[in-house]
Nucleic acid binder design. Structure first.
Lengths: 339, 339
DNA sequence: GTGAAAGCGCTAACAG
DNA sequence: CTGTTAGCGCTTTCAC
């Protein structure tokens, strides 16, 4: 079956400890011996048994990505694949493995949380930020499992997180619309029980207050980060005759685009539309979508690197990282009409 | 720190072995004792240390999902999120955890493969089928790691796999176009170094041969399962004046749609388009896409369940599961023109 | 039915 | 520099 340290030791003519030292790159091994041992290891394809190792080191080399039920909707768009790519890249670089916990139901949640936290399979966790008030964060703290949030928590005290600059992003998008001359600007928000939803709405409000001064509550409709939700929200917005709409996600913008098309309205001539995310599809839809690009992959990489740094170098003051975003101007905002 | 069996035993006034028996649902424990032990476990929130357990049982309760470099492109569309949802659902149901291995570079591949297979962290693996000739499958067999493929391998001997019915799906789509009266039907294939790409092209050929008899090689263009690839392929198809196009994936169909729009052609009036996958976006694009729906989530669940069955009940004859697909008729195929 | 004891494969003192 | 020894927390014989 699988080789053990003992057998490698015998083959190399040394003791178990020496082999262990070689594998873990510890000092106090003669260069010559070191090479001999490595050769045997390579020739045999030996790999240390992780269970045995972590039983004594109390570390597993595994971090978990937890995706709560509440953010499952996000799973329908390419956000998670990109985030995961970023995370796995950092994991591969730093020799960590990634375990994935996708919670489908409340029962699974209650069954999985204790196991995830107490079975000591995970050295730490990356958590896709959940609804405001989700008890997951509290559980993590209570169980002393190091973790990093993707997205801003409602109360960031003592918590490390990585997020895109949602407020500034939304502010930039809406300012752009104002600069183009639109005045009746509506917004399709994200779910307002999430900080993302709240922050992007905040950016919208900031821009309007600063440049325009007037807020019309009828032009603010809550969406849910789905295409259907964007479609429905646009339908509710239409009677209030918006000249332009800022959708808090591209997926919702696509829904809005569809609603406008179905209503026989032209984008951007009748209604301008701006999104948030810059999904691949944003460039190729009709008309190409003006949107706020957020660096999703980098968010994943950063989150993983912060966590791994904490794991490797011990706890640090919590880090709050906000990644800058960028307005990508295409044609759905009507920029070509040169207002 | 974390509780151990020993401490639970002391609290319950029994021996370590008895607690172990209770936890593992073994016989030979008096009902009364059993309940007393469970109560202590519940009250303390005790969770057995997985490393210690798997050191002796030689099982970890972890299965891996391996995504080779070659299929990374797929990661750009919602295929993987759905597949992962299906897999995690089965994992949660059967008390397994999922570890994710996304290979970004050749170096990572070479570094990770040995570790994945020999470090005994994984009980088994689900592998997203890779290019024909990829050595991963061979490695898995050599290392005796039980695995299930998502997608048909080129040589299925001794291998369990789960796939959608690609040949029939493509055949149905193209037959539908033929029935609508189109004759010059082109196809944008998947990469022809993958079985998916090959099988969907086969279905196209089968339908044409059966109902029409004539194959025009100019109407067959290889794509790569990306939007840009679909766009480029459509551009190459255009000079040959196809009346209809079967794209081997929705993402490529979107690219084709864009190319047609940019060329000032109307869909389906000038060129009809049919896709494959039925992504969420297929229903909401313009015009709504006629496509072949494949049950992605179910594919994931099935793959996981086959693997878990093998792990729990020992090796079985390899299972080859082909899930049926379904033509979803919308308007991009021109059905409304009632030919 | 229950407990005592051995040992899974590794790391980490501690001797030498 | 290197080897010996003692566990890490659990399951699993084997006695009783």
């Amino acid at each position: 079956m699988s080789l053990t340290l003992e057998q490698i030791a015998k083959l190399a003519g040394v003791s178990r400890s020496t082999v262990s030292r070689v594998i873990n790159d510890q000092p106090n091994v003669r260069q010559e011996v070191r090479e001999r041992v490595w050769r045997v290891i390579r020739e045999t394809g030996y790999q240390p048994n992780l269970a045995a190792r972590s039983l004594v080191t109390r570390r597993t080399g595994v971090i978990g990505l937890v995706i709560p039920r509440a953010v499952q909707s996000l799973f329908a768009d390419p956000f998670f694949p990109q985030l995961i790519q970023g995370i796995t890249q950092a994991c591969n670089t730093h020799d960590y493995m990634l375990a994935l916990f996708v919670l489908h139901t409340k029962e699974e949640e209650q069954k999985l949380y204790p196991r995830v936290m107490r079975a000591r399979l995970l050295d730490g966790a990356i958590v896709a930020a959940s609804e405001i008030g989700d008890p997951l964060v509290r559980h993590l703290i209570e169980n002393r499992l190091p973790f990093v949030l993707v997205g801003r928590p409602d109360d960031p005290t003592g918590i490390s997180f990585v997020q895109p600059d949602n407020v500034i992003g939304a502010y930039t998008a809406v300012s752009h619309l104002l600069r183009l001359g639109y005045r009746r600007i509506g917004t399709i928000t994200g779910p307002l029980n999430t900080t993302v939803g709240l922050d992007r709405r905040q950016g919208y409000l900031d821009a309007l207050r600063e440049r325009h001064g007037v807020i019309d509550e009828n032009l603010i409709v809550e969406g849910d980060f789905t295409e259907a939700g964007g479609h429905a929200a646009m339908l509710r917005l239409l009677p209030h005759r918006p000249e332009a709409v800022f959708a808090a996600s591209d997926i919702m913008a696509f829904g809005a685009l569809r609603a406008l098309r179905e209503a026989g309205l032209s984008v951007p001539d009748d209604v301008a539309v701006v999104g948030f995310d810059d999904l691949p599809a944003a460039a190729s839809c009709d008309p190409p979508l003006t949107t706020v690009r957020q660096p999703i992959r980098r968010t994943g990489t950063q989150a993983a690197e912060v966590l791994i740094d904490i794991l490797n170098n011990g706890p640090t003051p919590p880090r709050h990282i906000t990644l800058s975003v960028e307005l990508v101007i295409r044609s759905s905002c009507g920029v070509e009409r040169k207002r």
